[in-house]
Design a binder for these strands. Sequence first.
DNA 1: TTTAGTCACTTTGTCGACAATCGGAGTTTC
DNA 2: GAAACTCCGATTGTCGACAAAGTGACTAAA
Lengths: 226, 226
Amino acid sequence: MLIPQPQQGTLSDIATHKLAQSIVTGELAQGQKLNEAELAERFGMGRGPLREALRHLEGMRLVKRTPNAGARVVILDRKTLSDLYAVREALEGMACRIAASQMSDEDIAQLGALLDRHETQIEKQGGKVYAQSEGDLDFHYQIARGSRNQMLMDLLGSEQYQLLRMCRYRTSRNAERTKPALSQHRQIVDALANRDGELAELLMRRHIQGAWRSISEMIDKEEQAK
Amino acid sequence: MLIPQPQQGTLSDIATHKLAQSIVTGELAQGQKLNEAELAERFGMGRGPLREALRHLEGMRLVKRTPNAGARVVILDRKTLSDLYAVREALEGMACRIAASQMSDEDIAQLGALLDRHETQIEKQGGKVYAQSEGDLDFHYQIARGSRNQMLMDLLGSEQYQLLRMCRYRTSRNAERTKPALSQHRQIVDALANRDGELAELLMRRHIQGAWRSISEMIDKEEQAK
DNA sequence: TTTAGTCACTTTGTCGACAATCGGAGTTTC
DNA sequence: GAAACTCCGATTGTCGACAAAGTGACTAAA
């Protein structure tokens, strides 16, 4: 669902998807040079479609191109992530506010059920946080969908925010935040159920601010370590 | 400044720029089919660079592609514009809040000077609203820059928001809104000067909501007319 | 030893041609 | 007369090859 199309459409789309996946999961290291000919051969296609895919990825901010010097995987430094979380706070807050008036009762109930699944998942396997992480993204994406705002959905969901997934893969081991995060999610769903858009926005913004603090501390530790 | 690069770099970049300009100004009508071969010849280049440009424009949401059926200029319907203004409200509000703490005193002074220039411009020529319209964009972009958030700048400025310029070209004749808009701009600059981020955000959000109401009414009239 | 210059190689940018797919006109059949 | 089928033209998707720009190593001089 978060991964657009598995393996259909034009070669360019396939390449876009495969590269995005490789970048997000860290298979392609940050800052790594992307050689057109090499990648084209690995994917079994010509350089034309691959170049189009790189352009597409550039639009997603997953790669950075410089004329006559090729493409490199973006580098998620502290500043970039900080900027990302500020944008998230604004967009997801807005999504929450609108969703409170736009989602159907059934939508909200399903959101609650999603959280139930997360809860059992967390209790069963404290270690495998990855699932929660992707599940968490799912929660946020469902709210974006709830806003019925196609642009918000594009920005938060399928297209732009692969960066966020990339960040998650890097810092997915903060298991201690899964429980407060789930609790915050529940609060948000409650606010949505009460049709209180302002509160839902406030809670979402706090939730994202908290997530950023957590990530920020982790980066500090990493930088301290080396 | 709002138009990335005039005529340098790769052919693909040139094509991107020219097409974006043509779409924004309405030279290419909404929903118009974009024939690759024809455009390539008109720009004096092969189809390769042009296809890359179309991919880029797709990322900017200026064109919509469907596999095996080519690209068409996007259609700015009421829903799309409504979505756009909601996103703007969230992003520019956030930009304002951050800018209040990040802009230098000099930056803010320059922003005030920009408004002075707008004022004299409006008084001189009530008719030529276009200049104000682009100038207004400039005001908003300067605040995005003031946030020192590269992602906000990208989203609001150079890249994504060509859609907004497109909208302006369509509905640039609401001269009656230039004066209240300028007054609202002044209020925002005052809030920034006082380093009151919360107020600046509030004012900006209201300003954008007001702009949307104005545009929305205009669309209503248009639809009524036909 | 360091630095400047040159040269060859690698990689990107671009083009033209071929294959696959889609839309529509014309024809056939019920 | 209307619906479905077929075929043809047009357009998109893809590939291989060539030209241009950048990168790095090697040589030679200070």
